[in-house]
Amino acid sequence: MNKIFDPSYIFSSIPSIMKALPLTLIIMIASLIFGLLLGLILTVMKLQKNIVLKSIANGYTAFIRGTPALLQLFLVFYGLPQALSFVGIDINDWSKSVFAIITFALNSGAFISEIMRSAYLSVDAGQSEAALSIGMNNVQCLRRIIIPQAFKICLPNLGNIIISLLKETSYVFTIGVVDILGKAKLIGSDGYGVRQLEAFLAVALIYWVISIVIEQFISLYEHMNNKSIKKLANSNC
């Protein structure tokens, strides 16, 4: 049995690993969407004067930030079906990918809420007061003044969240979901695991390339956004 490292196997295994990429991206994107919604809700709770709502949101964020994402996945995968069974709801036939999406949405929502909260607070309060003084209501003030500036501030950190979500999807193989890392593990196990190193290097390249694409997309969006802001400012001069 030839156990010599074979670099060519790295590239020859990439097409097979890429077959699992759609599932990885579905889990990442769905988790991001639900995480953004949860993050927005938590942000609103944290900005409230109600001490109960603020304490719940801060306590939730502290728990998520203080526990590993892999442990959270196990808690959701094993704990949620048991918890819902007490109220007569059976979710044992749910797809394992759904539990992964729930977990990563709960996880990312906590971090996104902190990003949104700090971005909101970084916008000068005087701008809101000025907008309200010229007749804007609170919704118009948020939509036209606060949100565009806050979004620009939090965009780089949101990009980091997306990349983190991509990497965290690698945990799903532990509950039986075959993502790109799981596919690499299966491919590397063929032939008594002789080519596991090459398969893992192949999936590392895939993660790396996707992360670069995400970073470039965020940078391009920031550049286009800055150009549109400058153009609008020059037109108002």
Rank of each mutant, 00 (worst) to 15 (best):
M1I: 12
N2H: 13
N2I: 12
K3G: 11
I4T: 14
D6T: 00
I10F: 01
F11R: 01
F11C: 02
S12C: 00
S13R: 00
S13W: 00
A20P: 03
T24E: 02
I27P: 00
I29A: 11
A30Y: 01
A30F: 07
S31P: 10
F34H: 10
G35S: 07
G39I: 14
G39V: 14
I41A: 11
L42D: 01
V44W: 09
M45V: 11
K49V: 13
K49G: 15
K54Y: 13
K54G: 10
A57E: 08
T61R: 09
A62Y: 10
A62E: 12
I64D: 10
R65D: 01
R65T: 02
L71N: 06
F74T: 04
L75C: 08
V76Q: 10
V76L: 11
F77H: 02
Y78G: 09
A83M: 15
L84V: 07
I89D: 11
D90E: 05
D93T: 14
D93S: 14
A100G: 15
F104R: 07
A105W: 04
L106K: 06
N107G: 08
N107E: 11
N107V: 14
I112L: 15
E114S: 08
R117K: 14
R117I: 07
S118Q: 04
A119F: 02
A119K: 02
Q127N: 00
S128W: 13
E129R: 07
M136C: 00
M136Q: 00
V139G: 05
C141D: 01
L142G: 02
R143N: 07
R144T: 13
R144I: 14
P148A: 07
A150S: 03
I153W: 00
N157Y: 10
G159E: 01
N160W: 04
I161N: 03
I161T: 14
S164Y: 06
L165S: 07
K167A: 02
S170H: 11
V172N: 02
I175G: 00
I175E: 03
V178C: 05
I180R: 02
L181H: 10
L181G: 09
G182Y: 11
K183F: 04
K183V: 08
I187L: 14
I187N: 06
G193A: 03
V194W: 12
R195N: 13
R195E: 05
Q196S: 11
L197K: 02
E198V: 01
L201P: 12
A204R: 07
I206Y: 05
I206G: 09
V209S: 11
S211F: 10
V213A: 15
E215Y: 01
I218Q: 06
H223R: 15
H223A: 15
H223M: 14
M224K: 11
N225G: 08
S228Y: 09
K230Y: 06
L232D: 13
S235M: 12
C237H: 09
